[in-house]
Amino acid sequence: MEGDLLVLIVAVMQSAVRAGTPILFVCIGEIFAERSGVLNVGLEGLMLVGAIAGFTAGFNTGNPWIGLVAAAVCGALFSAIHAYATITLRADQIVSGLTLTILGTGISGFFGKPMIGQVGPGFERLPIPGLARIPFVGPVLFDQDAMVYLSFLVVPIAWWVMYKTHLGLAIRSVGENPATADSLGVSVTKVRYGCVLFGGAMAGLGGAYLSLAYTTMWIEQMSGGRGWITLALVIFAAWNPARAVLGAYLFGGADALQLRIQAVGLGLPTYFLMMLPYVLTIVILVLASRASLRRRIGAPAGLGIPYSREER
């Protein structure tokens, strides 16, 4: 009985990492965009575009890596619309982001029509020899697919760039106080464009994870609200890439646990279980907003405000 429980826990945690990885990719990208002062609520649309671009490219070439590149490029291209509208034209960031979601949903559905029901190539599970045999930690962290390992690389790099490099300092200063950054010779426009495009590329990768690794097919609206969950997660992570890992796996865990409970059949209604990750989102948002009242968790001060040189 004891052993059974351990096996179950390992299985749940393993799928928690799998379910958390797409959210993690998107979250890292959005942290960069928000740190530079641009709120992108179009993540849901970007994920869908990334998912269909990745799947189509992977399906036609038979190589999931080409699919990944295609997803990142398409995600970046799509977020360029948002970047142009909010940075150059100084439009409202929320409205532009919501529009991006509608556009992404429409375009992915349109181009995804012929792909429905097809099974494409995917990332196979790739246990790392040696490391995968460590009890408990091994199967959870090192018996995963290549994209999960990629995310293990991306997170420390993102953290290092954000806190230890000149570029990271420029990004943070542009998000806190663009006028000051501008007066010190940092190009606000360039930094913001760069961050939004990077955020789009990462959202594309997160979407591609869904269609190339999590499942190997395209389902309309397959992101299923993960883009919105990520927005809450960025706040939970306090705009810190390292804390994003914790949050992403927590949400992944809620997702995995819900599927597991359904499979075991405890007699709880399915819809109640499907609600779990979203309830968690609300709870965390409430907690985070209370914490922020107490000690200002460090939201970028310039977030959501378009920067205009003439008005500084």
Binding site: T99, L100, I102, L103, T105, G106, I107, G109, F110, K113
Partner: peptide, 8 residues
């Protein structure tokens, strides 16, 4: 989907 694209 076309309708969504046009609206966006």
């Amino acid at each position: 989907n076309i309708v969504l694209i046009i609206q966006a």
